[in-house]
């Protein structure tokens, strides 16, 4: 009897020890990754780095055109995906019944969310760059990314719409407003911050995306002027620097900046989301 009990205690100790170890390894390695890149990269960040043009393919100088390219591509994708995503979510949550057709559309949205980014890149290349003749450009990359972030936007907007109490809808409808008036004047204003959260998450995803962008925006280091110019985003720039081993310093700086921006964006989304739940 006593021996069995001792056995059990040892087993417990081993089990909890290994769980603790697993947790420590997981958290430790993720922290190491962040700290390593930030510690090596942040000291090389400066206003000069942000405001200057790159020289020697990025070996020297800054990343100004890359920043502008990133903003361009991201804005394009969000401007296209946002109206579509919100409209789709409004349809799903306010208009659609439980019909077969709706079920099928939902299934395809899930499929779209699961497609790997390189496939989006291939498609963007075949369709926008070649078939529609856009060439490697901001617009080709932007539309490709908008397709990628669409499911995120639909899902988060729908979640937000769900939080609006049914009484609001009934109140508005009983006052004689039409369904559309109810949506525009009552429901959407109620879940502004929820929609904003989804928008910010979409932006974060668009900025971090590389594979899809690689095959659609080209990679020019010139300052893009029109949306039909080729450009390079930050994540693509990081890949180019890393794969060509041009400059350790610039690579770490770019990686650190990318991490800071993406973490900042996701933190902001979380912050707004938490405020939403308090409301």
């Amino acid at each position: 009897m006593r021996k069995r009990k001792g056995n059990k205690i040892i087993k417990s100790a081993v089990f909890f020890g290994s769980v603790r170890l697993a947790a420590a390894v997981t958290l430790g390695i993720l922290a190491l990754l962040l700290l390593f890149i930030l510690v090596k990269g942040v000291p090389h960040l400066s206003l000069k780095f942000l405001a200057e043009s790159p020289e020697n393919m990025g070996k020297e100088g800054g990343i100004f055109p890359v920043l502008i390219g990133t903003v361009y591509v991201t804005l394009t994708s969000v401007l296209i995906a946002m109206p579509l995503g919100v409209a789709a979510a409004v349809y799903f949550s306010e208009y659609a019944g439980k019909g077969r057709l709706v079920h099928i559309i939902r299934f395809f949205t899930e499929v779209l969310a699961g497609i790997p980014s390189i496939i989006f890149g291939l498609f963007g290349f075949a369709f926008f760059v070649v078939f529609l003749g856009m060439g490697w450009s901001v617009i080709a990359g932007g539309i490709t990314l908008s397709m990628m972030i669409l499911p995120t936007l639909i899902r988060s907007t729908e979640e937000a719409l769900k939080t609006v109490p049914g009484a609001y809808r009934e109140g508005s409808l009983s006052l004689g407003a039409t369904k559309w008036q109810t949506v525009v004047k009552v429901i959407l204003p109620c879940c502004r911050s929820g929609i904003l959260t989804g928008l910010i998450l979409g932006i974060g995803r668009a900025i971090g995306e590389t594979a899809a962008v690689m095959l659609t925006v080209g990679g020019s280091l010139k300052l893009p002027v029109s949306i039909f110019d080729s450009t390079r985003t930050m994540s693509l720039h990081l890949y180019m620097l890393a794969s060509e081993g041009l400059s350790q310093e610039k690579t770490y700086a770019t990686a650190a900046l990318l991490i800071l921006i993406v973490l900042g964006i996701n933190w902001l989304a979380g912050f707004i989301g938490r405020r939403l739940t308090k409301e």
């Binding site: 995306e209 994540s235 690579t251 991490i259 993406v262």
Partner: peptide, 14 residues
């Protein structure tokens, strides 16, 4: 969950 948002190219560089 914040870390889930880190771009894959950063993991590659790491």
């Amino acid at each position: 969950e914040l870390l889930a948002g880190i771009p894959s190219v950063v993991y590659g560089f790491f």
